[in-house]
């Protein structure tokens, strides 16, 4: 019931994008976010937007899910855009009042910032809608692997991340149950003064913490019984496979970059 709150939930459609290796998807999304900052003209933005739209359509995920990802951030975007419009200067001045002014550059910058935000959100939503959280965790582990040589406990961190993900629904469920029990005992959440509202959380948070600690203790015992004695040398059941499609995706991204630079210096 709560999974909607979690960063754009996984929607299985088995598209080409879904089947890409999570490492490829993670690295390429991060890379794309970086090159968005290279765009500097309407041609470059148009090119990146067209590419993003192409990717979105190829996921076969209904567009509504992307809108769900953007909606909670609408206010932040608008706020930033407005700041940008009013506070940047240069070019033709359309309107001025004290330190506030609407200028040609301001408007253009505002539009660019808006595009930048939109592209970043869309691309990261593509990642989360087409990749299970667990796969993202696997990709992070694989990418951080070289750090293990520097004594960074990469395996332990990855296991922690995967266990945390696995327990999110359990704890959500638990908090709903505790909330029901306290409401049945007369607690009214979300009414009254701020202090009253904060205080009404205590009967939820304390049982939730206690239950989480008990679960952690049980889990540790169970892991020990199953022979877990640290991350060192464990074999892996879930292997990531790099396919030709992943290489192709990298090449495509390279092509996108080349065209972007072409457009950038053309202008």
């Amino acid at each position: 019931m709560f999974s909607k709150v979690l960063f754009g939930r996984f929607v299985p459609t088995n598209s080409l994008i879904h089947r890409l290796d999570p490492r490829a998807k993670l690295v390429l999304s991060l890379y794309f976010i970086v090159i968005i900052f290279m765009a500097n003209s309407w041609q470059t933005y148009a090119w990146l937007a067209a590419f993003t739209l192409g990717v979105i359509l190829s996921t076969k995920v209904p567009l509504k899910f992307f809108w769900d990802g953007i909606r909670p951030l609408v206010w932040i975007i608008l706020f930033t855009v407005i700041l940008q419009i009013f506070f940047s200067s240069g070019g033709h001045v359309y309107w001025a009042w004290g330190i506030l002014s609407v200028t040609q550059f301001g408007l253009v910058n505002g539009v660019y910032i808006f595009c930048r935000f939109l592209l970043i959100i869309c691309m990261s939503t593509v990642l989360t809608l087409t990749t299970q959280p667990l796969m993202i965790a696997d990709a992070v582990e694989a990418l951080l692997k070289p750090l293990a040589k520097l004594k960074v406990p990469v395996y332990e961190l990855a296991l922690m991340l995967s266990i945390a993900l696995r327990f999110v629904p359990t704890l959500m469920d638990e908090s709903q149950k505790i909330m029901n029990a306290q409401r049945a005992r007369g607690v009214n959440f979300g009414t009254g003064s701020l202090i009253k509202r904060v205080r009404s959380l205590i009967p939820i948070l304390i049982p939730l913490f206690i239950s989480a600690f008990n679960r952690a203790e049980d889990l540790a015992t169970a892991m020990e019984a199953r022979g877990y004695s640290g991350g060192e040398g464990r074999s892996k059941y879930r292997l990531l496979h790099w396919h030709r499609a992943d290489t192709v995706a990298c090449v495509v991204m390279l092509g996108v970059t080349l065209i972007l630079f072409e457009l950038r210096y053309l202008a």
């Binding site: 149950k177 029990a181 049945a184 005992r185």
Partner: peptide
Amino acid sequence: FQFPEAQL
């Protein structure tokens, strides 16, 4: 509730 001790 089921396992009501969880509400303490």
